[in-house]
Simulated scan of single mutants.
Amino acid sequence: MVEVILKKGKEKAALQRHPWIFSGALDKVKGSPANGEVVRVLAADKEFLAYGYFNEKSRVAVRMLEWDEAKTIDRSWYQQKIRTAIASRAHVLRNGDTNTCRLVFSEADFLPGLIVDRYADFLSLQILSAGIESAKEDIISILREELQPTGIFDKSDATARGHEDLEVTNGLLWGENPPEFLEVKENGIIYHINIAGGQKSGFYCDQRDNRQILAAYTAGKTVLDCFSYSGGFSLNSFKAGAAHVTSVDSSALALETLQQNIDLNGFDKVHSTVIQSDVNKQLRAFKEEGKKFDVIVLDPPKYAPSRSALDRAARAYKDLNRHGMGLLESGGLLATFSCSGAVDIETFKQIIAWAALDAGKEIQIVKQFSQPEDHPVRISFPEGEYLKGLLLRVL
């Protein structure tokens, strides 16, 4: 096996079980490993540290897999990791109210670059590292064996693949193609989702808990759901008895799906307004109309894909939240989120404080949101904690 030797003093992160070794930490590579090949990672004194995927094209030169030198990275190793990940989520799907969740979450499950989401009887895969790409056939075989899905669909169209020198892919890997609108259930609410043409892996199951938490505040209220996508927060608000829900998204397909989801659950469209628009533009239009809401949800896409984009993202988050705060009466609630891993919760709170100052508003933090248990965070990999949110009361 090819050996990768680190520079003196660069072994600390590996000893602390952090799964990334950056290219600047490498001293020597003994051999010519292919991108995605498993290598032995050694400290400068030649002490064994771990096995990991090597990739000379990536800034993360080695993605660590296994710290036990006696283990072999083979099909059995992958099967054990996948079985453990699936078993840890079994209770999420057990009560019958939910049949969709994340089964494998990359580094959190010791499989860097592999995301597996379950949607009813179908699986959606995102393969984001060259190492997982090289093990793809074994992984598909294991998932078939463990879960007996109707079909496995490839949604590896994320820009992250470019950093690993991989082309984006999207299509059927095994079994049947999912229907254009697949019916799934989350917290007792029925959704039509579009795996092939939808965003990310097909549905944002990382907001499952937060949708239910926020819904408890919406009975009898007017709700504005921004970046609504297929209607997670909107539908939970309807179920909780909201007086009226306005959903805003720029995607026509997302809003078509939302309308179907309203019908599927038997909610009254008389109490629904659906608007296709850029959210920031629509928030300014609401202000000009003198429109006010009781509860507003701001769940934007990732504004900061990396730390280099942090300043620009901070301005975008501040402006978005400033506009949202201006549409709330005294006592109104703002549920605001960031899915940017580069924005930690303390930075996000500071951005919100700036937005409140610019909006001339006093606010209280009522509750803090995070990602659900099927998106766990390894204590040695805090970067996995990407989703954070705040429930704010405007005074």
Results as ranks from 00 to 15, higher is better:
R208C: 11
G231M: 04
S228R: 06
A243S: 15
D206H: 12
S250W: 03
T222R: 15
C226E: 01
S251D: 08
A216H: 10
L253S: 14
N236T: 10
A254V: 07
S234R: 02
D206F: 09
S230Y: 13
G202V: 13
D249T: 02
S234F: 12
T222M: 09
V245I: 13
S230R: 09
G220T: 06
D209E: 15
L214Q: 02
T246N: 01
E256Q: 13
D225W: 08
S250L: 08
G202E: 04
G241L: 02
V223C: 05
L214V: 05
A243W: 07
Y204A: 02
G232S: 08
Y204I: 01
S228Y: 09
S230K: 08
A243F: 12
R211D: 00
N236K: 12
L224N: 12
G241I: 10
F238E: 01
A219D: 10
E256L: 12
S234E: 10
I213W: 00
S251Q: 12
C205F: 15
L214H: 00
Q212A: 13
S251K: 14
C205Y: 15
G232F: 02
A219F: 06
H244V: 12
R211S: 01
S251E: 06
L214K: 01
R211Q: 06
G241H: 02
K239H: 13
A240F: 05
D225S: 06
L214T: 02
T246R: 05
S250Q: 07
S237N: 04
F238C: 08
V248I: 11
G241N: 09
Y204M: 05
T246G: 05
F238R: 04
F233A: 05
C205H: 15
A254K: 12
V248W: 06
V245A: 08
R208P: 04
A252M: 13
D206Q: 11
F233M: 10
S237V: 09
C226Y: 01
Q207F: 10
G220Y: 08
